[in-house]
Design a protein around this nucleic acid. Structure first.
Lengths: 161, 161
DNA sequence: AATATTAACTTGAAGTTTCAAGTTGCTTAT
DNA sequence: ATAAGCAACTTGAAACTTCAAGTTAATATT
C-alpha cells in the first residue's frame, strides 16, 4: 500500500494551497529562467554551470564525481553524462583519480575562463529574479524555510534500506 | 551587452548566499522527489500530472492548450508533446476545438479514474515533503515570498519586444 | 478584397535526464 | 588467500524538454 495515507485524505487548506501553488510556480519557472540566461551567455544550462562552479571552488579545481554529485544534488549517472558533454566543450577533463577506483574531474583553463566571463551576468540575473524582489526579512525567512525543507527527498541513487 | 551589469559585479553577501543555496536545493530536489513518487504510483512525472489536474478541475474536464500551458507554466511545444504521450496512455483526448483554430484536450474517464486513485497519495507526499516541516507562520511567509517572485522569468514562447 | 500579421498550435531534431544494467577495484569476512 | 559484498562509477536506451522551423486560421491593413 504505497501511497495511501492512513486515515481519510487530508487535503490542503486554503493557506496551504496558496503556498503550494506559489512554491510550484517557483520550482517550475526559476530553473527555466536560469537556464535561458545561461544558455544565451554560455551555451549550457544551470545544472552544468553548477558543476563548473563547484569545481572552480574546489582545492585543485578538481573533485571526485561523488562529491560533485552530492554538492549539486544530482545522480552519478546524470553527472557522468554531464561530464562527457562538458569535456566535449573543453571545459572539464576526466582524470584517472589519484586515490582509488575511477575518476576525478578537473576544470580546464578554458572552463575557468568561461566561468569568469559569465559569472557576473549570472549573479546579476539571480539578483534580478530573486533578491531585487525580496527585503532582508524575506531573505531570512527564505533561508529558514529552505533549511527546514532540506533533505526532503532521499537520494535518487542512494542506498535502499 | 547581454549579461554585463552596469557597475562592478555586486556578489551575494553571506545571508543572500545562504538563502540562494537553500532555494537552489529546493528547486533541484523537490521536483525530483515529486516525480519519483508519482512515477511509482502512476507512471508519469509531476509535469504530466499537473496537466491532468488542470483538466480535471476545468469546466468540461477539457481546456484549450494555451490555457493549460499558462496554468502549468510550460511552453506550448512541451505541452503538445506531453499531450501526445498522455493520449498514448489513454488519459487524455485531443478534440478538434469547438471555437477556433486547433485543438482542445479533454480528460478521459480512464484519466479521471487514475487521478482519483493517485491524488491521495500525492497529497500526503506533499505534506510529508513540505507542510509537515513548516509551521503556519512559515506557510504564510512562503506564500508571500513566492508571490513576490512570481513572473520572475518571462515566458519561454512568449512574444519578444 | 487582397495581403500581411499574429496567435495557436505541430513537428522533428538535438540535447538532457532517468532508469536499469553493467564494470571495476577496494574491503571484509571466512 | 579467497570469495562476497560494496562503492564509485559507466553505459545505453527510453523518456522528456528545448529550440527552430513549419502550419493554419483568425484578424488587421491597405
Amino acid at each position: 500500500m504505497p501511497g495511501a495515507p492512513d486515515g481519510p485524505t487530508r487535503w490542503l487548506d486554503q493557506d496551504e494551497m496558496r503556498a503550494w501553488l506559489g512554491l510550484l510556480g517557483i520550482v517550475m519557472e526559476l530553473p527555466q529562467a536560469l537556464d535561458r540566461q545561461l544558455r544565451a551567455e554560455a551555451g549550457i544550462g544551470h545544472a552544468y554551470y553548477s558543476i563548473l562552479a563547484v569545481l572552480s571552488s574546489s582545492p585543485n579545481q578538481e573533485s571526485r564525481l561523488r562529491d560533485i554529485a552530492a554538492l549539486t544534488g544530482t545522480s552519478l549517472s546524470r553527472l557522468s553524462h554531464a561530464i562527457d558533454a562538458l569535456q566535449g566543450k573543453g571545459w572539464v577533463l576526466r582524470q584517472p583519480s589519484d586515490d582509488a577506483r575511477r575518476s576525478t574531474a578537473r576544470l580546464t583553463p578554458a572552463g575557468a575562463a568561461m566561468l569568469e566571463r559569465v559569472a557576473p551576468g549570472h549573479v546579476s540575473e539571480v539578483r534580478r529574479l530573486v533578491f531585487d524582489r525580496l527585503d532582508p526579512q524575506d531573505v531570512r525567512h527564505l533561508a529558514e524555510i529552505s533549511a527546514k525543507l532540506r533533505s526532503a527527498g532521499d537520494r535518487a541513487d542512494g542506498p535502499p534500506p
